[in-house]
Nucleic acid binder design. Structure first.
Lengths: 146, 146
DNA sequence: TAGTTTGTACTACGTCACGTCGTACTACAC
DNA sequence: GTGTAGTACGACGTGACGTAGTACAAACTA
């Protein structure tokens, strides 16, 4: 049996390309040429290489694309933060950790105090959403599993 | 330049082998033969395949090994939870997320209420440690960065 | 002591993911 | 109609992994 890991992983260049898309002003996306020109400033690279990468990214559903004249305009399918979170969650799931509390504890153990604060803030935010969802019979964002 | 992602990734079989090591009664580790016999019950596999995998795992420092007669006894270098946490952290670092709060928020968004509880528990635990560290001039576990 | 077993070390092969392009072909602008 | 974007498709090299064979040494056994 071949090698297969559940969800889409990002290669180094793929990640760099995603960077450029994320950096492209506010959801405007970018064409191959635009990404190419951006990359070319930092390193030597062929136009077609960028094209291929963007293409693979699209196949992995990490980016979307829309026709723009003869060319395609690419958009990140998710924000950097959402993708990061997904990847982290996938790790947690794949590892089949039974003691999640311990795993999370280890995670926090390597966290900066700033990060701890961020987590607390995020936690408070989620709780607020849960309360809101409980208040209105069918709130619009109460997606808590189980 | 070749393909290179910072830290060690786990392949499918590698993960399965790690499972067996983690399951081997309380830090007793396991020999190639033991892992092999364990795996053989579930699927057909060659003794040498297991050996190779264990060997690669050792090269990646994911397992340790000690001589035991003519054979080697392998031990997981980290607990499943610690490794999971490391991998999650690496993801967070690699993605160069600037808005960690948002990323964490997305992460929590996909969490079960049980998991939320786990996080809270872990958070409380870390805070308790910080306080303890502040109380005694040089506590034994106050590793908070920044 | 010669044969069998157990274990390691080393080598190797197939496949897939990725980085990296080249080529062929098409639509549009002069 | 001759460049100039652009795309579509195919291809090659390398590294990671799954998979395992072979060679050879140590240890047990008849």
């Amino acid at each position: 049996m071949p090698h297969s890991t559940s969800a889409p992983r990002l290669g180094d260049l793929e990640r760099v390309v995603m960077e450029r898309l994320w950096e492209a002003d506010q959801g405007e996306g970018a064409t191959v040429r635009e990404v190419f020109e951006s990359l070319e400033k930092d390193r030597e690279i062929a136009y077609t290489t960028v094209m291929t990468v963007l293409d693979r990214l699209a196949k992995k559903d990490l980016v979307t694309r829309e026709r723009e004249g003869r060319a395609w305009r690419y958009f990140p399918a998710d924000t950097r933060e959402a993708l990061t979170a997904q990847t982290m969650r996938r790790t947690l799931d794949d590892m089949e950790v039974t003691d999640r509390r311990a795993a999370l504890l280890h995670f926090l153990d390597g966290a900066s105090s700033q990060e701890i604060a961020d987590i607390k803030a995020a936690l408070a935010e989620v709780e607020a959403r849960v309360e809101a969802a409980e208040a209105s019979p069918r709130g619009l964002r109460g997606r808590l599993r189980r």
